[in-house]
Each structure stands twice: as structure tokens, then as C-alpha cells.
């Protein structure tokens, strides 16, 4: 897993909270910085792809680690 600048733990949260929290966290980052999101909502896998596509941020990685979903999002 590559580096990141901030972590958002969205474990236990359901749609649409992981996306909304991620949006909020990204607002605090500078362009080019990376947010790591940890989620347990299986729907978040497709949702973060769609989020990246529509906001212009880059989904650098999307993985499953010990039952959790981990995303790296690079701010546009």
C-alpha cells in the first residue's frame, strides 16, 4: 500500500456516510495529497469508484484488508 496524508475511518457507517465523510476530509487536503478511507460497507467499493469519476479525484487504490475495504483517494 502506498503512502497517504490522512486517514478516515468510516467503519460501521452505511451509505451515504462514507462518501460524505470522505468529501469532508478531502476538503482539508491540498491538491495531490492522498486520503486513506477504511470502510465496512460493501456498497462503498462501487460508490468510491463513482465518487472519483464524478469529482475528478483519483482512486489510486481499492483493496480489501482483513474484512475491511480500504481506498486511497488522491485529491485533484
Amino acid at each position: 500500500m502506498s503512502g497517504f496524508d490522512q486517514v478516515l475511518d468510516a467503519s460501521g457507517l452505511n451509505c451515504p456516510l462514507p462518501i460524505l465523510r470522505a468529501k469532508k476530509s478531502l476538503a482539508d487536503l491540498k491538491s495531490g495529497q492522498v486520503l486513506k478511507v477504511v470502510a465496512t460497507d460493501p456498497g462503498s467499493v462501487k460508490d468510491f469508484q463513482a465518487f472519483a469519476k464524478q469529482t475528478g479525484n483519483t482512486l489510486v487504490e481499492s483493496n480489501q484488508e482483513s474484512g475491511k475495504f480500504v481506498f486511497l483517494i488522491k485529491k485533484a
Binding site: C15, P16, I19, L20, K23, F51, Q54, T55
Partner: peptide
């Protein structure tokens, strides 16, 4: 749900 998400997008 839809409007909060749409706003985030």
C-alpha cells in the same frame, strides 16, 4: 440521501 450525496458530487 440522494441530495446530500449529489451535493458532495
Amino acid at each position: 440521501i440522494l441530495s446530500s450525496t449529489a451535493a458532495a458530487l
